[in-house]
Write a protein that binds this DNA or RNA. Structure first.
Lengths: 132, 132
DNA sequence: CGGTATCCATAAGGATACTG
DNA sequence: CAGTATCCTTATGGATACCG
């Protein structure tokens, strides 16, 4: 019975592996507006480095979530777009977004409460600095 | 217009941050069967180290996704369970699981195709060893 | 323009001995 | 039983120079 737990979680773990990492989702969202060029992505995803953008684009392309079209012009023009599969994924993610929005406040409060009791227990007074 | 992309992805990135990492989902799945003890979790999640289990349990508890109940007996007995919020999350994840199952084959094929062309391009013959 | 290559810092994760 | 502490290895990510 025990191993079934792992088995049950497996497809989920799989999908999250494709989509995990700091940037994949942002890239998917950014690329969802139709064909987008490399530099557009670089600009629209705040804080991403060129290296990470490239790495994640390749990963998503490899998983069949993104198409990469090279126009052999000079200067080169490369366009990325979501595949049908990725668009489906994107709409599944909507449920998650709704969950996040519904519970965002609750999570923040839960953390505050947790940090408060955690830092209050060891000493007499609760230490003012948040754990992290 | 560009910054809106980040804003749009943000709640999603947030939720995935809570749930990201190699183990969180497996823990959530394992803990979903009602109150579960530490050692049960350790056994049912194959490959997890004690350290990682503890770290992830604390993180999930802090986010308000898991309750931790200590029975002050000897030997100690600690039980973990999902909160209502986490159960909701869990059902939202169902959509993702379905997506993963529908497209699992397609993803595998996409990868194989990608790896094939990628290793075929540089040399004349496609190298037999898969990239990774 | 659209990347690669390189170097470096930090974080995540594993193994496992020890403890109340 | 349910952890914590410690040590170590690997993976992730950032900055940026360089190239076709």
């Amino acid at each position: 019975m025990s191993e079934e737990v792992t088995a049950e979680a497996c497809p989920l773990v799989e999908v999250l592996d494709h989509v995990a990492g700091k940037w994949s989702i942002s890239i998917l969202v950014a690329a969802a507006r139709g064909p987008v060029r490399f530099t557009e992505l670089e600009r629209s995803i705040e804080g991403i480095s060129r290296r990470m953008l490239t790495l994640n684009l390749r990963k998503l392309e490899r998983d069949g979530l993104l198409t990469r079209t090279v126009h052999p012009t000079v200067p080169p023009k490369v366009e990325y777009d979501l595949t049908a599969m990725a668009r489906e994924l994107y709409s599944s993610l909507t449920g998650l977004m709704e969950w996040a929005e519904r519970h965002r406040g609750a999570i923040t409060r839960a953390r505050a409460a947790y940090d408060a009791t955690a830092s209050a227990e060891p000493s007499g007074q609760p230490s003012p600095q948040p754990v992290h």
